[in-house]
Nucleic acid binder design. Structure first.
Length: 691
DNA sequence: ATTAACTTCAC
DNA sequence: TGAAGTTAA
């Protein structure tokens, strides 16, 4: 793109021109940045920068990329309808560089965008503000993603909450309501953008096209479609949410999460509409429906909390927040990992979930808990591997939400479930899938097994298995790990973890700066990494035949069964009315969304480098940035444009010491003092150490 | 009415 | 596991 200066390139020379930088706020309605630009008058240049290399290992997976591409088309059409020129798109390995260039190209004097709270965005956006300010450009950023900004929600000591329930209760009882949703601007004038260079963005390669075409049958990205989905949910499934949400293939999930992830839907709109429904139902005395609203809003609350955690603890996607978990000796076993991905663990509910995830990019919330809990507690694989796999495959992959979910499952949050409690997939199976319909849908080889045995085929009499055409260990696996063995290994691992933790604390008390080794730094398996050609800033789709991933089913030794299965998956399409959508990837479709990573260290997110990024001194303390709550209620709109979420150095924050992730010299002791419910674990460990 | 036993569900 | 809510006595 030419560096020729600007106004000439992009037409006229208006008094004022603004760039609106779209990211994960791909909507026209209730978009404060867009509204502010439109309100300011002058010309508005809507822009999108595709810079996935910035995400390091979290390069968006195939389904995520497909969603973005569709959503951008929709956004572009909407903007044009409002009178704007095209959505200007740029491709770069560095969004800040691309944006500076765009500002120069257009001669813009103002830049508007909405806040993001993932660690990379926090740093990048701060840098952007500084660089633009240095060039005399006015930058304003807004909250478009949350009910309340993370720094607004604090406890009585004005410290961030460390437990979800308390956090959410506070959100629900704030002095002021979340801002009411904004209407779309009536008119956007972009001036003449015909000469403003835009780059074609490539979100899929040839091999992905077939699978993506199937996605389009089940999902329609785009903010107006998101809005329709919301309306449909409010008028239908929401009322029964409290009853139905427990079923594995429940028809009453909202299916809004991918829309929310890309900001096609404003949570504030969702919140207000659900609240209104709730009032109506409450007045009618419909308690079940009222409760449904409470529960659904809670899941919105969890999404809020994930941003809250990420803002307050930017390493939460890669390091356990509770320090002792860093010493957990994970089982580094790629073959277990592969078996889990393929859905061949021998536990039907787990396998069904993994195959659904693979085939559709979707998984019911409950089943996410089942498969991730199995991953962490039975297989004891490093949780970040599982999280990365979710990132690569889920349609609603969301770094903040997934980090919260996996840390919760791993027992590394103050309010986590205990790590040493293994959930039994068999019991969960009868709970979430009492008739085995879900299992039979996704594991064709078990279709003929009676419900009595469907969740524990290993206990079934030989005659029953024979009648069902099942030969355990042959066409359906025996359990990969027995639960008793898992429990035993888990106890050993925990005891080892506490010993290491104690040793590390002793080392640090002796004046050493660093503690002992950190098991949270287990690298991703190579096949989960990607290859980025930095020179061209294009991701090179290294074609790797990942046969283990192509068919969500049998071992390769069983070709006969494999054929049956693919036929079955195809046929079942019209019989799956209850399943939220009907996308089936043909099992033979070849895909290589996993790409190998040989990129240099600059963008790599590993423990140390990441740490350095955040250790860079930043002048702004959260206290300095965050207005007081009372202030906020009175002058919200006037001030919001001035506030940027800037990660505050942990040392400056008195509270951070409860979370080891933020400071090198912090042990889990302080956390344990603060969170009495963990003392049980602590006492147990002391006991085991004294043996 | 008050307590104890029993069930449910966790972010 | 244990807090909260529910039922039974």
């Amino acid at each position: 793109m030419s560096a020729v200066s600007s106004s000439s390139l992009c037409g006229g020379d208006p008094a004022m021109r603004s760039v609106v930088w779209f990211r994960r706020d791909l909507r026209v309605e209730d978009n404060p940045a867009l509204a502010a630009a439109a309100r300011a008058g002058g010309e508005v240049v809507p822009a999108y920068v595709w810079s996935p290399e910035e995400e390091g290992p979290y390069y968006p997976g195939r389904v995520s990329r497909w969603w973005i591409s569709q959503s951008l088309k929709h956004l572009d059409a909407s903007l044009r309808r409002l009178g704007a020129g095209k959505l200007v798109t740029r491709r770069s390995a560095d969004a800040v560089v691309a944006l500076l260039q765009l500002v120069r190209d257009t001669g813009a004097t103002h830049v508007y965008f909405n806040h993001l709270y993932d660690p990379i965005s926090l740093v990048r956006d701060h840098r952007l503000k500084e660089m633009l300010a240095a060039e005399g450009i006015v930058v304003q950023s807004f909250n478009a993603d949350l009910l309340y900004e993370p720094w607004e929600v604090v406890d009585d000591e004005r410290q961030p909450f460390t437990m979800f329930t308390a956090f959410w209760n506070r959100c629900l009882s704030m002095q002021y309501d979340p801002p009411a949703p904004l209407l779309p601007p009536k008119k956007i004038n972009s001036g003449d953008l015909s000469m403003c260079p835009s780059e074609d963005l490539i979100f899929e390669d040839d091999s992905e096209r077939g699978s993506n075409a199937l996605l389009a049958r089940a999902w329609t990205p785009g903010w107006q479609n998101a809005d329709k989905a919301l309306t449909a949910f409010l008028n239908g499934p929401l009322a029964d949410y409290s009853v139905n949400r427990k079923k594995a293939d429940s028809a009453s999930t909202s299916l809004l999460s991918p829309h929310l992830h890309f900001g096609e839907l404003s949570v504030r709109k969702v919140f207000h509409l659900v609240r209104m429904k709730q009032l109506v139902w409450s007045n009618e005395g419909n308690h079940a429906a009222e409760e449904s609203c409470t529960l659904f809003l809670r899941s919105i609350g969890l999404r809020e909390y994930s941003r809250y955690l990420s803002f307050n603890h930017p390493s939460s996607h890669e390091r356990p927040l509770l320090a002792h978990l860093r010493f957990f000796p994970w089982v580094v076993n790629e073959s277990y990992f592969k078996i889990w991905r393929q859905g061949r663990t021998g536990y039907p509910l787990v396998d069904a979930g993994m195959r659904e995830l693979w085939a559709t990019g979707w998984l019911h919330d409950r089943i996410r808990v089942v498969v991730s809990s199995f991953f962490v507690k039975v297989l004891q694989l490093p949780w970040r591997w599982g999280m990365k796999y979710f990132w690569d495959t889920l349609l609603d992959a969301d770094l903040e939400s997934d980090a919260l979910g996996w840390q919760y499952i791993t027992g590394s949050l103050p309010d986590s479930r205990e790590l040493d409690r293994i959930d039994n997939p068999q019991f969960e199976g009868y709970k979430f899938d009492p008739h085995g319909e879900y299992v039979r849908r996704w594991i064709p080889e078990l279709v003929r097994l009676p419900t009595e045995w469907i969740h524990h085929p290993w206990d079934a009499p030989v005659s029953v298995l024979q009648a069902a055409g099942i030969e355990l260990g042959s066409n359906y696996p025996l359990p990969i790990v027995e639960l008793d063995a898992a429990k035993a290994r888990l106890q050993e691992a925990l005891s080892e973890m506490w010993q290491l933790e104690a040793a590390s604390r002793a080392t640090m008390n002796n004046g050493m700066e660093e503690g002992l080794g950190d098991s949270s730094e287990v690298p991703f398996p190579e096949e989960l990494q990607m290859e980025v050609d930095r020179a061209t800033a294009n991701v090179v789709m290294t074609v790797r035949r990942r046969e283990d991933q192509m068919v969500p089913t049998m071992t390769s030794s069983l070709n006969r069964a494999e054929t049956e299965v693919s036929a079955d998956l195809g046929n079942s399409e019209d019989t799956r009315a209850q399943v939220p959508f009907h996308a089936h990837f043909h099992p033979r479709v070849e895909r290589e969304d996993m790409i190998q990573n040989t990129e240099g260290p600059a963008l790599r997110i590993n423990g140390t480098h990441q740490h350095n990024i955040f250790q860079q001194p930043q002048n702004h303390r959260r206290e300095a940035l965050a207005p007081s709550v009372s202030e906020a209620s009175s002058s919200w709109t006037g001030r919001e444009g001035a506030v940027v979420p800037v990660w505050s150095p942990p040392a400056a924050s008195g509270h951070s010491e409860t979370f080891a992730a933020d400071e090198a010299d912090v042990s889990s002791r302080s956390y344990l003092d603060r969170h009495p419910q963990s003392h049980r674990l602590m006492n147990w460990s002391q006991l085991s150490q004294s043996l």
